[in-house]
């Protein structure tokens, strides 16, 4: 898979309350509405300007806090194709994989990328390229890639339950 887009840069410990505020978590929102709330607490311009395919480059512990799955979903619905970070909070990491949102751990890329940089990511090669910069990352384990390729854990489970004859 090749991903192309521009970078949105954020810092360390971007938590789920600023990605998708608690006041919306128990309200049914359409994907468009969810996309509209993405990151509104720390970056009110994000949802209006983000384009399909764009990538977030964050610091450490991205997605810490609540288990709310909308934090991963709203970014996906906003058009974000991948999140690059030094590290990810574990439930966010699970939610991202389970919703087919690519998460890449790369300390180097996270440090060197800036907002507005044009980048391309090759998931098979395990490379992130931007101008003259090239960063390598370890590809996801097969098990995770399988879930992402199915489009998330729900289609993956449907496929699997049928296979098992349940």
């Amino acid at each position: 898979m090749i991903i192309k887009g521009k970078v949105w840069k954020y810092g360390d410990n971007v938590n789920t309350d600023v990605i998708y505020p608690g006041k919306y978590t128990y309200i049914r929102c359409s994907p468009e509405e969810m996309a509209g709330h993405a990151l509104e607490v720390i970056d009110p311009d994000f949802s209006g300007s983000v384009a399909e395919g764009d990538v977030i480059a964050a610091g450490k512990n991205f997605g810490c806090g609540s288990s709310r799955e909308q934090a991963a979903q709203c970014l996906k619905y906003a058009g974000i194709s991948a999140v690059i970070g030094k590290s990810f909070a574990r439930i966010f990491f699970r939610n991202a994989i389970n919703n087919g949102l690519l998460v890449i751990e790369s300390e180097e890329a996270s440090e060197n990328l800036s907002t507005g940089d044009e980048i391309s990511i090759d998931t098979e090669e395990g490379t992130i390229k931007s101008g003259k910069m090239v960063f390598n990352f370890a590809p996801l384990p097969d098990f995770f890639s399988e879930i992402i390729e199915c489009g998330g854990i729900i289609p993956y489970t449907r496929k699997r339950l049928k296979v098992n004859g349940i």
């Binding site: 799955e69 699970r94 939610n95 854990i153 729900i154 339950l161």
Partner: peptide, 12 residues
């Protein structure tokens, strides 16, 4: 865990 995961456990 996440909400979808809980749904997956309910099913499987």
């Amino acid at each position: 865990i996440g909400r979808s995961e809980l749904a997956v456990i309910l099913a499987s």
